[in-house]
Write a protein that binds this DNA or RNA. Sequence first.
DNA 1: CCAAACTTTGACCCGTTGGTCAATACCTGA
DNA 2: TCAGGTATTGACCAACGGGTCAAAGTTTGG
Lengths: 215, 215
Amino acid sequence: MSAEEAVPATAAPGRVERKRGRRIQEIVTTAADLFGARGYDAVSLEDVADRLDVTKGSLYYYFSSKDELVTAAIETLGNEWTARLEALPAAHEGPVADRLRALVREHIGIAVREYPAALRLFLVPQEWPAAQQARIKALRRRHDQFFRTLVEEGVASGAFTVTTVDTTLQCMHAAMSQTPGWCAHLTGRAQDRAVEEFTDTLMMLVGVAPTSASS
Amino acid sequence: MSAEEAVPATAAPGRVERKRGRRIQEIVTTAADLFGARGYDAVSLEDVADRLDVTKGSLYYYFSSKDELVTAAIETLGNEWTARLEALPAAHEGPVADRLRALVREHIGIAVREYPAALRLFLVPQEWPAAQQARIKALRRRHDQFFRTLVEEGVASGAFTVTTVDTTLQCMHAAMSQTPGWCAHLTGRAQDRAVEEFTDTLMMLVGVAPTSASS
DNA sequence: CCAAACTTTGACCCGTTGGTCAATACCTGA
DNA sequence: TCAGGTATTGACCAACGGGTCAAAGTTTGG
């Protein structure tokens, strides 16, 4: 079981690291879950540790502070989310209005169904160290990029009518980030309908009436 | 312990009460300021007391808990705000689109200029006693009423095109409640311009293009 | 000017929470 | 099987924050 390890020299350079990496991911994922659901203040490190069946002290073996853990959690959450949006086929083909609509719908859908209130994480505490703030801001920028691209394209092609791209995007994100709260009491079909409604409403922000959806 | 139930000549029936009332207002106003600026968790009772040049203990002479103080603060803030919106002349005459526009602009203006981030107060902690929650919900309902009335009127008269009144209102409020954050770094003219921009953008939610603004 | 009512103080209680650390358990490769 | 790194524990600390309370200070009406 071990003799045939034909990789003796510099044996397993990454084995240990990889294991450590996985553990970190585990922790970060769990943390993201909790922080996403209840917010920064409301979740203590013991809550996180408990969920992992571990002691608080262990967390400090991997992270040097709560802020760092939270930042990592936000990063994980954000990257995963962004990746999923970027991987959405419907957001890459067809009329720009339809692409944006698909993107918005997916975004809201993920927020509502998988990360209740997660976006509140993007509200970085002012008192955090600059480094942390920068990391999260960069994340946000990347996350917004896809939306911005589409909106700009729509404007350029005359399909959208927006006052200012920035303003429009901010309003969109504000509304999207709170949809989970509004949908909290809904389930199944009703929730789906709500997602549709919000999507349609948000499309009006770029000047696309909901009925014209057909494409 | 008190035989003087025979209040003489109803002398000053309210003198003492009124003084107490004023003190309470003072406290509540200060609290509203702080909580509005930094949020529930980030403000301790000592912060409030400090600002009033008083000891934490004193606050408990007027309020039985932090929750109660905060609730009172929210109520004060909310009522004042609502009253100012309702007193806005421009929101009572002219085409419905112009009225709504004036209302939105004023709302955002107040938020940005006077109550930075105050609206975050409306996010009531779930773990609060039902009574408190009810008070704030009622407040919110009254606050929304004016907006709802106008939107409904616009829809009825065919001036607006909205998917759902509820959804539209929620998106509007979400965006409005976060505008202060976006405008935090702006001052003077730039801030005014931002308020205009957001107003125009939000008008698109009801299907009114910004250029038709004239008024 | 006094006594009763009203205010405020400041010391104190207690649970929570972020953070530290020496000691111990666990692996793993040789 | 044993050494060495890796992971985890659990006890502990200090600061903070909400809340209590008896005692002392201040107003006020008579």
